[in-house]
């Protein structure tokens, strides 16, 4: 469905030193420097996959996404999406995709969302009966009925985002590019958006590529992760394998009725468990997978425990560790 080969995108950025003399020089000779935002990216996505595209700010995520959506022309390399070359922006391509960005909107600001929906129906040539069917489905899934006729400017951020999703999906695109779709939303609305995206993917077999700094989005939606840093893919695989590679083991959190003794901590240390946070009422341990059973048994025997949880380390911590590793940009 999506194939990217040796994708490079460079920007020419004007260099303008401060001062009047430099400004005058720039009138006759403007200097530029080349910034390589994407430095040779390769990956393939199958139809119906949900993939998280992660990386720190400035890593090249959004630039890659814009190349895939046909908004940017690659400097070199080859990109194919649903059989089309995105930079050509032919009709068939534009009808097959949609791009939803959490901080941008396509809704007409002073009109009700139904006006944008009607506009998109006309532009995407959606027959009236199909439009009504799809709209009914989207209204039900996203609970849009109360906001359809209100001017967009009067909607809350969450209501607007749900309407953005509906406007973006009325033509039933086969490829969804989602750029920070839950930014600024409260937790309930974030969960609603995630549920909706997953339901749309499962119902219509659409391919979803998601960039987000909200790791809950990625954890809930994306079995596969692509990590980009300094314009290069540094990881491509399952979320579980990433966690196992970067921070093998489990995070064990103990809620204590009394503080852990130094003896107990020393015994836990013998099993390979490392204390990552400690207070009188809580102890957080990073435990290697192979000694998990020993460490948990020891903790239950030597500490006064009210509650105990065992979980994967949070994805954001795993990513932070990955980016901090030497050679993470290669």
């Amino acid at each position: 469905m999506i194939s990217v080969r040796s994708l490079v995108k460079e920007y020419r950025v004007p260099v303008r030193p401060p001062g009047v003399a430099a400004a005058l020089r720039a009138l006759v000779h403007r200097e530029h420097r080349v910034v390589k935002a994407v430095a040779g990216v390769d990956f393939d996505l199958r139809a119906g996959e949900r993939v998280g595209f992660l990386g720190p700010n400035g890593a090249g995520k959004t630039t890659t996404l814009k190349c895939l959506a046909g908004l940017l022309t690659p400097t070199s390399g080859e990109v194919r999406v649903d059989g089309h070359e995105p930079a050509r922006r032919d009709d068939g391509f534009l009808r097959a995709i949609t791009l939803v960005a959490g901080q941008k909107q396509q809704l007409l600001w002073d009109l009700a969302p139904v006006e944008t929906f009607a506009l998109n129906r006309a532009i995407y040539d959606v027959p009236l009966d199909e439009y009504r069917r799809t709209l009914d489905e989207l209204v039900a899934l996203l609970d849009l009925a109360p906001v359809l006729d209100k001017p967009v400017r009067q909607l809350s951020l969450g209501e607007r985002m749900k309407c953005e999703l509906a406007a973006a999906l009325l033509h039933r695109p086969r490829v969804l590019f989602l750029d920070e779709p839950t930014v600024g939303l409260d937790v309930l609305m974030q969960a609603a958006v995630r549920r909706f995206v997953k339901a749309y993917n499962e119902r219509h077999g659409a391919t979803v590529i998601l960039t987000s700094h909200a790791m809950d989005d990625v954890t809930a939606l994306c079995p596969r992760i692509l990590v980009i840093n300094h314009g290069r893919i540094v990881y491509d695989g399952s979320r579980e394998a990433l966690v196992a590679r970067v921070r093998p083991g489990r995070r064990v959190t103990l809620r204590l009725s009394s503080p852990a003794t130094d003896d107990a901590l020393a015994a836990l240390d013998q099993t390979g468990a490392k204390v990552t946070a400690r207070s009188d009422h809580e102890l957080v341990l990073q435990v290697p997978q192979r000694s998990l059973a020993d460490a948990v048994s020891l903790a239950l025997a030597r500490c006064a425990i009210d509650d105990l949880t065992v979980e994967e380390p949070p994805l954001d911590e795993v990513l932070a560790e990955l980016f901090a590793q030497p050679g993470a940009d290669a």
């Binding site: 097959a96 009109l111 532009i123 995407y124 040539d125 033509h171």
Partner: peptide, 25 residues
């Protein structure tokens, strides 16, 4: 939507665009 889906007639497409454009105006 399938790529082979029928296109709306130009007249009805133009009317829809003009109607929404007038609402904006």
């Amino acid at each position: 939507m399938s790529e082979a889906a029928a296109r709306l007639p130009w007249g009805s497409k133009a009317l829809a665009l003009l109607r929404v454009g007038l609402s904006s105006a």
